[in-house]
Nucleic acid binder design. Sequence first.
DNA 1: CCCCGTTGAGTTACCCGTAACGTTCGGCTA
DNA 2: TAGCCGAACGTTACGGGTAACTCAACGGGG
Lengths: 347, 347
Amino acid sequence: MANLVEKKSKNNKVSLSQVARAAGVSTMTASRVLRGEGGYSEKTRIKVMEQVDALGYLPNRLATVFAGDQTSTFIGVSIPDLGNEVFAQVLEGIDRKLGTFGYQSVLGLTQHTQEEEENWIRTVLSWQPAGLILTGRYHSKRATEMLRNAGVPIVEIWDLNAAPLDMSVGINHFDSGFDMGRYLTSLGYKKIGYVGTSHDTANAATERLNGFCKSVDGAGGAVVKQLCLHDTANYYPGFYGTEQLLASTRDIECIFFQNDAMAFGGFQYCTAKGLSIPEDIGIAGWGDLPIASVMNHRLTSCHVPHLKLGQKAAEMMMASLTDEPVPTCVDIGFKLIPGATVLNARR
Amino acid sequence: MANLVEKKSKNNKVSLSQVARAAGVSTMTASRVLRGEGGYSEKTRIKVMEQVDALGYLPNRLATVFAGDQTSTFIGVSIPDLGNEVFAQVLEGIDRKLGTFGYQSVLGLTQHTQEEEENWIRTVLSWQPAGLILTGRYHSKRATEMLRNAGVPIVEIWDLNAAPLDMSVGINHFDSGFDMGRYLTSLGYKKIGYVGTSHDTANAATERLNGFCKSVDGAGGAVVKQLCLHDTANYYPGFYGTEQLLASTRDIECIFFQNDAMAFGGFQYCTAKGLSIPEDIGIAGWGDLPIASVMNHRLTSCHVPHLKLGQKAAEMMMASLTDEPVPTCVDIGFKLIPGATVLNARR
DNA sequence: CCCCGTTGAGTTACCCGTAACGTTCGGCTA
DNA sequence: TAGCCGAACGTTACGGGTAACTCAACGGGG
């Protein structure tokens, strides 16, 4: 008879009721044993656990979530891209911290587009996540609607967002650009260039540039040329972007880059062309990436605690899930790094 | 009466039956409309869709998977760490490709330990993923057991694995180390150092080192000193590791690093100490990271198609899920990059 | 006007685990 | 020894969605 063979369910997985049957108890008893909530004898526990081992039973958390008011342990995490070391570190901070609480990240790479983000949000919400962590503050209209109706905690990271959907942790990019502009102009720089990449949507880098321009303009300097490449914000675009910038505009005294990777690319271009840094031209980056730690000229940059930002986002999420009080908006802060790739005593 | 208010279920989410009730049809009809499988009139379709929009209904995929023979669209992806750019790129390749098929990565950072991996595997399997992509070929005994019983496709990446649990895509690390050793000795290098990091478990870097030593020894050279730091394989450890290496062993002619980030750190250290590269000392890395593209001396390295590797892993997973024929083992290949940080005409 | 095929829509059962409640039975007390 | 109590375990219903089946209405051909 086919009955003699414990038939696994169609997806070929062992279910609790099979374990129970094999152990000669009811599913409820098996359930109690597995959850260790008491109400069973030691003899029963052993019988059940033997069968768990024998059959290789793995609990089906889908069913658990489905059954009760429990929530899943998924946290949807959207990240623009991982080619940018900065975001890789943020993700690392998030996932590690979530892991310590027994939660998992469901990744979404949005490639800096709201459309991708919207699609991803729709999909990930259909999996009943316990919460969402989103990079950036700008979402499509429909995405915003879904997020409002989602009924799960949401942490928006990266951009400081005083009026978040739910919670927010980030830094004030405008201010960080502003501070850098003020710093460079205070050193005497007047004619400054910018090299970055453009994504069609407004983003943090845009805000930094805005803040930067504002302070430079206000201090009597000028951002004489802004180069926004259609490329990734990485080493090589920094390299050739600098080439383009210097080819079109001769008398630039200092270049502000979208991030450290691009700044390093620019640094290498200048060095290769025989320009001395900082004597001939100043270089400033942003983000304080690990590579800065081994450059022989400390890169002028802006330190952002990437890992900590990710961890904080995860902590806020967990706090919200356990109904602890959570601030709606946290400024994780940045720190300007004077560095040695700009001229300190310029006049 | 409370009935007048469409009460949302306890988790505050709109269910299909609520949509159906609001539209004045049965749940089954609403289900049919949402799946677009036909069997309903245009009038009905409109009624249902109106309520979907009005109530902001989002399908509950958990229930769908739970209900039937369908599988989830989760793919568990384990990655050692994201501080290492190489793995970040692999993950990017995986997630992007999975995304095009409507699948999501559930991330697991194993921190290079089998214990973390085992725990993660247990958890992620309980969520009924459609498949798993694992970095590395070494798993704990219990993990291996679980994986065998999981009944889902598994792709082991990074290490080439001729006898995988299910499928595998990677490169032959031993060979890549061997080739590098052969190349360096062919240039005349005899006394060679190595700087890397050690993780307690055997891993790909270890295999590269083994291959490297074998070919160097076989060619009459010697790996005079192997430094295995207890640190991350990043820029700064490359920097201070080189310092340690050169402090303890004077007459090293060339250093092979675990990866390009460390190699760059070493490069910077040497430059800072006034050593000319490649005249005074040779530098070789591994992985061909983006940073190599802007170095004024092309870094001697070994190119690995990280992104492509990730994509291939995702493709194999998808093929397996759609019952297409899939090779069990794919060698994605590597390519030695001679570069300019070693002396080509050394004698 | 009847029969039958087609179309539209409802009913039922099931997936897996858990909450809530029911049942059994051994042991202790009065 | 009857009565009671609680530990141990069983039964039922439920959650959201879908497959398979059933049923009703309608229109067209004979």
